[in-house]
Design a protein around this nucleic acid. Sequence first.
DNA 1: CATAGGGGTTCTAGTCACTGGAAGGTCAAG
DNA 2: CTTGACCTTCCAGTGACTAGAACCCCTATG
Lengths: 129, 129
Amino acid sequence: MNIKEAGKRANLPAKTIRYYEEVGLIRPLRDTNGYRAFRPQDVHKLGFLGRARALGFTIEDCRVLLSLYEDQSRASADVKEIAQRHLTQIAEKIAALKAMQDTLSHLVTCCHGDDRPDCPILADLAPPS
Amino acid sequence: MNIKEAGKRANLPAKTIRYYEEVGLIRPLRDTNGYRAFRPQDVHKLGFLGRARALGFTIEDCRVLLSLYEDQSRASADVKEIAQRHLTQIAEKIAALKAMQDTLSHLVTCCHGDDRPDCPILADLAPPS
DNA sequence: CATAGGGGTTCTAGTCACTGGAAGGTCAAG
DNA sequence: CTTGACCTTCCAGTGACTAGAACCCCTATG
């Protein structure tokens, strides 16, 4: 199976798949013409990677998760720990974004938004001189 | 005033200030020895930029916001529109992160996290084959 | 006067996970 | 035989810094 077909099945762009190979996440075989030859298990891995990336795991997390996935003697605790660390980071990002959102949405409701220059948004951005 | 002192007052690292000059957000004068010479209004601008960046505005947004800030004949509507667009993007990011959070936190609570291989997290990552 | 330290300068390269584009090889259909 | 859709590699760009190297400047002290 060529790269485009593999991408279609795993729902990933060909460019992304080439990148995943470059960073060593997958190792598809090669046809005699140099084309990548994807086996079903390669496509399966790609699907795994796509899902893990969609959940926000980094490439390095994906590398570890994939190796755990393929390790029949893994401990689920190892997987859980990675997921929990990731959850912590997600929570931090959400908190930071919410803080921005709170501040900004307040300022936006305060701003007339007309053709006059007075603007509480700019007033808030200005440092206390 | 040298760069470090300016950074202290605006609460920004010197490296960041040099970067802001490189992309044209500020234009400090130069001493005869080549050192950047920051005037109070430069520090004021840096404070503005620091605050705007802390609210998540992009550098390009900052550029426009700064020019509006310095334009006494601005229309507050222009400022408000930028802020509202940014708010929309923040909301999208929060929604995406929350979706990840929901999925992952559910999976994490389902995972025993012991030394056995069974793991609902990995099971969820695996594509339906 | 030499030197030590704490400033400053520029430049390059690295971060993260792709993404776009150029230049060129391969293959199946008409 | 040509067209067009594939495929390949390699290089550059994204955003907003950040680390580090190599070098210059200034002041204070022994």
